[in-house]
Design a protein around this nucleic acid. Structure first.
Lengths: 130, 130
DNA sequence: CTGGATCCCGCGTGATACTG
DNA sequence: CAGTATCACGCGGGATCCAG
């Protein structure tokens, strides 16, 4: 029995666990937030700046979800100009590793995948006309 | 510089690569299909049976996407009762490994995450009433 | 058996404006 | 600066019917 079959992604739960995680990190911003936060604790505005394209709303949502999951810690400073800082929890940090695995795979395979897509798309058009 | 910073998920592309992959495997069925297909080549109906809850439409869609990405191979047998078999390509197989990483993480951390969620949700309710 | 076509709903996502 | 509220849109994804 291989290592894969042991873990095998789908267990008795029909893949509930893995699906739960994928629902979480599969959304548009979670991974980028975690990745950015991996650089260290930082405040809301900084995240907003560092993550290109994210909206306030989405950043807030994502952070709340991560907080709820116990992957990100939130610290509010009772100051006149409000300051809130976020940081990965220990749990959150453990997520970075598998995420990096995936990222490495992604970076390595993206060219091939895009090529394959292009190939696939072109083939679909030019096969019926001689 | 740590290994993470080297790969760092967000590169010059602002996370395009990783986001591309996440868009792919982040959908509801891709990972389960890949995981199931990791058990060996099998036909459409078999996948439909093995993956609980997936609809015909979604299975077809997912397989098409994976095929387009070059992660899954599709073989059609010109028989009277149509038979189509799917199997992971070499590229597809390389995806299994990082996916398993994630799955292991998911299975290991799911309990903690769900506990954290429950905790978070309860805290939100009972803090204002003395 | 395989899988395309259609209809339909809910939710994720984003733009904008407002509050503390 | 941090966060919420509201609205509007598009797409994922399920059910169902039809075709080769």
């Amino acid at each position: 029995m291989s290592k894969y079959e042991k873990t095998c992604l789908i267990r008795g739960d029909g893949g509930r666990a893995i699906r739960g995680i994928l629902d979480r990190i599969g959304d548009k911003w979670t991974v980028l937030v975690v990745a950015t936060l991996h650089g260290g604790r930082m405040r809301f505005g900084e995240l907003l700046t560092r993550i290109p394209g994210v909206s306030q709303r989405m950043l807030t949502r994502t952070l709340r979800h991560l907080e709820r999951d116990g992957l990100v810690g939130r610290t509010v400073y009772a100051e006149v100009p409000p300051r809130v800082e976020y940081e990965l929890t220990d749990s959150g940090r453990t997520l970075v590793e598998p995420a990096v695995m995936l990222a490495e795979w992604a970076i390595e395979n993206n060219p091939g995948i895009e090529a394959s897509q292009k190939d696939y798309d072109e083939r679909g058009q030019g096969d019926s006309s001689p």
